[in-house]
Amino acid sequence: MSAPDLLVIEDLAVSVDGKDILHGINLVVKAGETNVVFGPNGSGKTTLMMTIMGFPRYQVERGKITFKGVDVTHMPVDERARLGIGMSFQRPPVVKGVKTGDMVKACLKARNMTGDLADLAEKTHMTEFLNRDINSGFSGGEIKRSELLQLLAQTPELVLLDEPESGVDLENIALIGELINELLQKGCPIHQRCRSGLIISHTGHILDYVNASTGYVLFNGRIISCGASPRDILDNIKNKGYQECATCPIK
């Protein structure tokens, strides 16, 4: 029996500051599955993530986003977060005076989660950061760990990861991969997983650590290719470039 659809995106067109970025995206993420979106800079990957999360700057011109069977197309960002969508930001803002630990507590509270702050911090190697202003002076790897710490507290059903490997050194990337796998319940048998992931990757490095079942190629705001083997897609991109992927069949 096929897993139920968790996220369904239909004919989604999005503009940012009056400029059309996405042109009719169709995409489905099934419960318990992890999908990867590849694409060159400026192809609209981040716009897709931000639109799914619900940031007001990303204006939905047409189409529909359904999450857990609920039409969330025009739902405010905080309601989506409480409903179970969570996002790891690529460049999160510094919020002066707001401590990392307080953010984690807020994440737990918003979703009525019972996770333990100290345990979560230890797991993400963030114990020393709990009393620091969120994202203030954090290195690339520290930002990722802080984002994953907050997501682990939130335990969203749909995890949106925007370039989880960017700016992370080799030492940290295995840990990042491990944490993502925990978030996505990779330790459980497939049929028991109910959390899903949508990962944006520029380089595909994260695939060495996190298994994904479906890959999409986004190019100029359109999905030009889709396949059940993200690694094959990645190889194709490496060999032929993004543009050529348009000739790959959409499965």
Binding site: M53, P76, V77, A81, G86, M87, V95, V98, Q154
Partner: peptide, 20 residues
């Protein structure tokens, strides 16, 4: 919006930033 993406309402997010 960053705080709202963690599930805080707009009012809660504003209050947290002001407190900070």
């Amino acid at each position: 919006e960053y705080l709202m993406a963690r599930g805080l309402t707009r009012e809660e997010a504003t209050a947290a930033i002001v407190r900070g």
